[in-house]
Simulated assay, not measured.
Amino acid sequence: MTGRRLISGGSEFERIAGYSRAVVEGDWVFVSGTTGFDYAAGTISDDVAEQARQTFRTIAAALAEAGASLSDVVRARYHITDAAFWNELHPVLGEVFGEIRPAATCVVSGLIDPRMKVEIEVTARVGSAPGV
């Protein structure tokens, strides 16, 4: 892959706020902070674990469009709005990244919408999946 390519996740907010769900540059895929909104349904679960699962579905779709997968993720950043959510979040992270084990950071921070409890940002390199 060469050149810069922008990937949209379908959120109107991407256009309004001037960002892309993901940017592909060469073999690298940079996925913006992603929350648990189901953009097709226009909903967000109140459950932290389900928000994380929806977030990973959105991230996986962006990575697939870029020719990558969650297995190619080399860096992840997790934002949670309450440290108490960690106990609900980390099992989901283990489900997704247990074998992939990217470098990762988790911070407690505020998010734009009070319904959001988790936001995840990843960087992937196409072809870097374990065993590739």
Rank of each mutant, 00 (worst) to 15 (best):
130 P>E: 03
114 P>K: 11
111 L>P: 03
87 N>D: 09
4 R>V: 14
64 A>I: 00
89 L>W: 11
4 R>A: 15
131 G>I: 01
71 S>G: 01
39 Y>E: 10
37 F>N: 13
79 H>C: 08
78 Y>L: 12
2 T>M: 15
98 G>F: 01
132 V>A: 10
70 L>K: 03
18 G>W: 02
52 A>D: 10
132 V>H: 06
123 T>R: 08
41 A>M: 08
5 R>V: 12
37 F>C: 11
131 G>A: 02
110 G>W: 00
23 V>L: 08
108 V>Q: 15
87 N>P: 00
1 M>Y: 13
51 Q>I: 04
14 E>G: 09
22 A>H: 05
42 G>S: 05
90 H>D: 13
50 E>G: 02
6 L>P: 07
107 V>S: 15
37 F>Q: 11
24 V>R: 11
47 D>M: 05
49 A>H: 08
36 G>R: 03
5 R>D: 12
100 I>L: 06
44 I>Y: 10
89 L>N: 14
81 T>Y: 06
28 W>A: 15
123 T>C: 10
1 M>Q: 13
35 T>Y: 05
129 A>I: 00
72 D>W: 00
120 I>A: 13
127 G>C: 10
76 A>M: 08
67 G>P: 02
47 D>Y: 08
32 S>A: 14
93 L>I: 12
123 T>M: 11
2 T>V: 14
14 E>H: 07
22 A>Q: 05
8 S>L: 07
51 Q>H: 07
8 S>M: 05
8 S>I: 01
76 A>K: 02
28 W>H: 12
95 E>H: 09
87 N>W: 00
105 T>L: 14
127 G>I: 02
48 V>T: 13
115 R>Y: 08
69 S>G: 11
114 P>G: 10
106 C>I: 12
60 A>K: 04
11 S>N: 11
2 T>R: 15
98 G>V: 02
116 M>R: 13
119 E>P: 01
56 F>T: 00
54 Q>M: 06
69 S>C: 02
82 D>S: 11
97 F>M: 15
131 G>F: 00
45 S>Q: 07
112 I>L: 14
48 V>P: 09
100 I>H: 07
54 Q>E: 09
5 R>E: 15
15 R>E: 10
88 E>N: 12
56 F>G: 02
10 G>K: 09
90 H>W: 08
27 D>N: 14
9 G>E: 10
80 I>H: 14
14 E>Y: 05
2 T>E: 15
87 N>T: 04
20 S>Y: 05
3 G>N: 15
